[in-house]
Design a protein around this nucleic acid. Structure first.
Lengths: 247, 247
DNA sequence: CGCGCCTTTGAAGGAGCTCAATTTAGGTGG
DNA sequence: CCACCTAAATTGAGCTCCTTCAAAGGCGCG
């Protein structure tokens, strides 16, 4: 029974002492801007790390909300499903980014969060986070900024879905990934996609065949080299130019 | 110089003493869940009301952010523009809803907020709001819920734009408006649209002609009666059924 | 009352979808 | 270590829904 074994393995590793202070993603995450003493107080909240296997759900629609999650390593997608089976991917998240903000308003999660590769996450009990942010102004303010940034990101996705053609959407998507990988110290020009064409399509409001065809066209035009999930950006400006051209 | 006159008129009315405690929208707004004593403290922040004429900007992209705004009466749209002139309407806001949350993350507004009818808004200085929410737990928590609700709403719009056909989008739009009007004590079946077909189209990722044609089709099918901006919903269940039908 | 903006409606065209077949990659068990 | 198997990706052909372009009608505001 491989599943049970996996479960057992997960639980034995479920509680690993960890700390923001030694996390190299802290500048992308909640601890941003805290001084060492404040950081230590945050550490005391973020006491447990959880390992997740590829394909596992961090939470599902309807799960009770009581913590937000920070990605220590790995890659996630969040999605919403409707009855008839349609899926909308609402975002792809990587190291240093927060998951679970959708659950605050109803005390239940309103989307699913799924690991797209083996990942490592920190759980931050939300009510304790609220308490602490009443005492540490910079934590409070930064948390507000993170939520606001999520709203602004969502506006960007609406722009994408509402006004852009397929080429523009995919160019924007690649440039966004590139920029986020770069910020984390990875190559800006070469990376592996963690998601399938179908998931990209769902995020961008396109069918997987359209995503595949558009990748091929980008390759023919010399903007990128693509081989399955491996992407190399050959001409950043070419991609940027694609985004500003009407019709 | 009518513009200058308008300006002068606005400034003379710019500071009107007002209070959450006598606002009948307080249950939809920031004061939700506060006890009378807490409400009074919030009142001391929300001390000025501002009247706005139809078409006026409450703020623009790039404006410095220092306050969030609550709509006391009226109707707004928020939008984002790209260089080539394309517009994405990111939302329509009505009484009791907050505007300006997009500005927190960069301390500058990232979208435009425009009054679609003569409106009345309350400005809440943000840093004072943060201070107060460090002292009033329920204010803090409710504010977090409001931001989270905005994120969840955005996910709904993504679903709309990413997976739905024109009919479904417009049905969802009408049902959403109806539900919000109902919650505020207006008729659930009859209302005036404050926005043009083009603005609806921009919000829904459709062209204005498609919006118009789809309204006409809904009318032919007996779901609604539409005459210009006046809408009467004749068959709520018909509209709901439209949303769940694949193809 | 006239002008401009908004809306409606028609006809033709195209971007992306659907359906289908083939290729490729990655994981599994012998 | 190889052969198998399944999931993912690619590519083609035809179709559909929405867009584009165009013209006419209606409403509201000065």
């Amino acid at each position: 029974m491989p599943l049970q074994n996996a479960q057992r393995k997960v639980s034995s590793l479920a509680l690993v002492k960890t700390a923001c202070s030694n996390c190299n993603l802290r500048e992308f995450c909640l601890p941003y801007g805290l001084d060492p003493e404040e950081l230590e107080r945050l550490d005391s909240l973020v006491s447990n790390r959880r390992r997740m296997k590829r394909g596992e759900h961090l939470y599902r629609v309807g799960d009770p909300f009581d913590a937000i999650f920070a990605i220590r390593s790995g890659f996630f997608k969040t999605d919403v499903l409707i009855e008839d089976g349609r899926e909308q991917v609402t975002g792809f998240q990587m190291g240093g980014e927060l998951l679970g903000l959708d659950g605050i308003c109803t005390e239940q999660h309103t989307c699913n969060a799924i690991a797209l590769e083996d990942s490592d996450i920190c759980a931050i009990p939300f009510s304790q986070m609220e308490s602490l942010s009443r005492e540490i102004h910079s934590l409070q303010h930064h948390f507000h900024k993170v939520m606001s940034r999520e709203i602004v990101r969502d506006h960007g996705v609406m722009m994408l879905l509402g006004t852009m053609r397929a080429e523009e959407r995919l160019a924007a998507f690649l440039l966004n990934l590139s920029q986020r990988f770069t910020a984390r110290g990875y190559s800006h020009a070469e990376f592996f996609l963690r998601m399938t064409r179908e998931e990209i399509g769902s995020y961008l409001g396109l069918k997987l065949e359209t995503v595949s065809r558009t990748f091929s066209r980008f390759q023919e035009e010399g903007h990128i080299a693509v081989q399955q999930k491996h992407i190399r950006i050959l001409n950043v400006n070419g991609l940027k130019a694609l985004m500003n051209h009407r019709s």
